[in-house]
């Protein structure tokens, strides 16, 4: 690809990377540390635990696999939404972003069923160290998905008002996409860690 022309026409000395992109990548770096700590704790507590249930026995793996498909699909649709926004196709953008939000919502609904079935069987976070980690990590991930839904809905609402032609709009769609892909990457690691290995 061509060398990066300074995307930012600003009178100030800068790195050629727009402020928003620097900020979102730094924020993702801190999120990497946050989830990295949860994974370290998971590995440490698992190796130190006397016994660790197999994912297949205690958790509903097919449902989780479906959930993974949903999240990957939503990653694809949000990157399409960014492509459509760049191509100035508002209808395409709204469709794709709507799909992303819908699939994220479906992901949470599936999560709700999973949690309620666990509670029904009397498995609470306090039941054992496995459930503690399961509920904490998936819960924190779920909160990040809620954040993503709010961000994407905000963008759609802003696009309908005067945001569509704002010079920052396409950038902000890209940053929402980066955040969403990161949440997907966290699930890509969380899914095998809790359910499969």
């Amino acid at each position: 690809m061509s060398a990066h022309a300074p995307a930012v026409q600003s009178p100030y000395e800068n790195t050629g990377v727009p402020d928003g992109k620097l900020a979102i990548w730094l924020f993702l770096a801190s999120e990497v540390m946050l989830f990295g700590t949860l994974f370290t704790s998971y590995i440490v507590l698992r190796t130190a635990a006397a016994s660790w249930p197999r994912g297949w026995d205690v958790l509903n793996v097919p449902l989780a696999t479906f959930n993974t498909f949903i999240l990957i699909a939503s990653s694809v649709t949000i990157v399409m939404a960014h492509a459509k926004a760049a191509a100035r196709d508002k209808k395409g953008f709204m469709l794709n972003m709507g799909l992303t939000v819908l699939m994220a919502f479906v992901f949470l609904v599936v999560k709700y069923f999973e949690y309620s079935s666990k509670f029904a069987h009397g498995h609470y976070p306090s039941t054992s160290i496995f459930y503690g980690i399961y509920f904490t990590t998936t819960g924190l991930h779920g909160i990040h998905i809620l954040g993503g839904i709010a961000w994407n809905l905000g963008l759609m609402w802003w696009a309908n008002r005067d945001g569509w032609d704002d010079r920052l709009f396409i950038g902000r769609v890209e940053y929402a996409g980066l955040y969403w892909h990161f949440v997907d990457v966290v699930w890509i690691f969380l899914f095998p860690a809790l359910y499969l290995l």
Binding site: M1, T15, G16, V17, A29, V76, H181, V185
Partner: peptide, 20 residues
Amino acid sequence: LVAAIFMHLKWESRFIYYFL
């Protein structure tokens, strides 16, 4: 795959590589 393609890391500026 997600990071390289979806997150455009393949065509990113060197500063982002430093942070990462």
